[in-house]
Write a protein that binds this DNA or RNA. Structure first.
Lengths: 123, 123
DNA sequence: CGCCATCATTTACGCGTGTAAACATCATTC
DNA sequence: GAATGATGTTTACACGCGTAAATGATGGCG
């Protein structure tokens, strides 16, 4: 089963640093999200059930470690969107952002560099 | 309220051609999706409630037309993903697909063309 | 040892979703 | 004009999600 958006917020904390306790996660995510302790605990339990995190007892509490890798998650999510909206092809997606004027100078520079590298690697 | 994935499938049919009757929509989407008539009707009603489509009586049935434009929907969806996963920047997204070897020759060619055009337009 | 503070686990609840059956409406045919 | 068939509308139901309160377990303190 796919992990939900709220769950992904918790994963994000763990991807930045792990292992972490529920309390630490709450501290990092509570203010921005306005979540209470119970909320975070529930999300952690659902993530456990989905085998997206692993919990290891440390004294009185548990420390949580991500099992699902960020790269995997990003992969699934972006492939889903790409397939649903752009026929699975990257260029139309970029074209979309381009039309939308959502390409920053920095983006353009980086894209150029990226293409150059692809060139070099495959002459 | 945002439109759901199943609802988007119905919208897709309407974006390809509109107006259309429920029956026509079912004919196009039923086989692939394994949906029954009631399902499509419900989705249409929810889309009506969300003001994503408009219905106009034509004799005994209704003809549905999209109100939400495909471009708007694509915009929302892709901005959401971009913000959530790539800090709102396009280049990292493309880099991600590049690492994943998801860039086809065609993609690369098109991206190159796109960058060239951006160049020309803003000398 | 018994109680309090900490954690975690369970249970709850309203809401959207996917899916569809039940019901209502209305035009067409006998 | 009543029965039939085609459409649309209402209602239903299980499930995941966001959010949190209630309950349970456990280790430390007096």
């Amino acid at each position: 089963m796919a992990i939900s958006e709220a769950e992904a917020v918790v994963m994000d904390v763990l991807w930045r640093e792990a292992p972490r306790s529920a309390e630490e996660i709450l501290a990092e995510v509570g203010p921005a999200q306005n979540w209470q302790e119970g909320t975070v605990k529930s999300l952690l339990n659902r993530l456990l059930r989905k085998k997206a995190v692993h919990a290891e007892r440390e004294g009185r509490r548990y420390l949580y470690t991500p099992l699902l890798k960020r790269e995997q998650y990003v992969q699934q999510e972006s492939k889903g969107l790409l397939d649903r909206l752009f026929g699975g092809r990257v260029a139309p997606l970029v074209a979309h952002f381009s039309e939308q004027r959502k390409l920053s100078k920095k983006d353009i520079a980086e894209l150029r560099k990226l293409l150059k590298e692809l060139d070099d690697e495959q002459p």
